[in-house]
Amino acid sequence: MSSSNELDLNAFVDGELTADQQAEFLEAMRDDPELARQACELGQLKAQLRLAYASPPPPRLRGGARVGASWRAIAASGILLVLGVVAGWLLPDDVERNRFVVLDADGRGQTPATAANDETRIVFHLTNADPLVAAELLDEVEGMLAAYQADHRPLRVEVVSHSDGLALLRQSLTAYGTRIHELAQRFPNLTFVACRNTIDRLRVERGIEVRLVPDAEVIDSGVNHVVRRQKEGWSYIRV
């Protein structure tokens, strides 16, 4: 068979001929039993190959030796990790204390202020009037203050209420006046702050004379205050 015929034969078997070429080829096969036999053989070879590789043996590596090796690897890294941690622990304290300074190479974050002392300082920025949100905030704050107190870790918390969030500190609207008072009594490191801008706006725009709960302090602007706190190195959480 000529080589171009052989290519055609292959193309026929592989379905690569156009419809016209295919019709032509079928015609040719009718006249030439040898060509038909060849086509049949190639088709069979195709099927045979497909059968031979339909289900190759699955990869073995998940079993036996390799798993053993990886277990040892895991154990080894575990032990070494512990060693490393212990080694780190034994280092002088300065290393740990200065670490935030290192982190703040390009002035991001609020790290220098935090690095100066170990006191955790958090400013919560409440702008939501939802009593459920306020309740959860108070629970969180109480839990944190109690936990830090129990561990003798220094903590300062400010709750800045601003815009709709002022509801928490308004005598007539708050659901938690007593709770706020109890918390403020129990934790001297907790401060509730009201935004004067919001109070003024309520007076001017809606004629409301705001009365605050006795434990609230007033600052000029809630937004300014939280920005200032962040600059001073406080962590910021918007509620």
Binding site: A76, S77, L80, L81, V82, L83, G84, V85, V86, A87, G88, W89, L91
Partner: peptide, 9 residues
């Protein structure tokens, strides 16, 4: 591995 542990700490 020791170094990694130290970094973590």
């Amino acid at each position: 591995a020791g170094l990694v542990g130290l970094l973590v700490w």
